[in-house]
């Protein structure tokens, strides 16, 4: 196994995913296989190769600085589970 349970737990926390014990066991096994599989990339000789982040070599288009949006709060908040006075609610955040 190239990954152990601690690593998977750490990844799941970073990704904010709660997993059951069964899911942990399965994830350790399957993620290890995926990692072993993608490890074959290390064979490729990539010295001096520029990483490619976009399939086309073009530049960003820019937008004029114009306000185009109006208040649609009520419509946009229809999908929210908990809203009060226009605020989205979450369990109290302690800073």
């Amino acid at each position: 196994m190239s990954l152990d349970k601690d690593q998977v737990q750490q990844i799941a926390t970073l990704a904010r995913l709660k997993l059951s014990d069964d899911e942990y066991a399965e994830s350790v096994e399957k993620l290890s296989r995926i990692v072993d599989f993608v490890d074959q990339l290390s064979q490729a000789d990539t010295s001096g190769v520029v990483p490619m982040a976009h399939p086309l070599n073009v530049a960003q288009r820019l937008r004029p600085d114009v306000v185009t949006e109006s208040n649609e709060r009520n419509r946009y908040q229809e999908n929210a589970a908990a809203v009060t006075d226009g605020l989205y609610l979450v369990p109290k955040v302690i800073e």
Partner: peptide, 14 residues
């Protein structure tokens, strides 16, 4: 080892 490497191999494939 993974992300950057994959982006480089992506370039080779393209």
């Amino acid at each position: 080892a993974y992300y950057l490497k994959a982006q480089q191999v992506r370039h080779l494939i393209a």
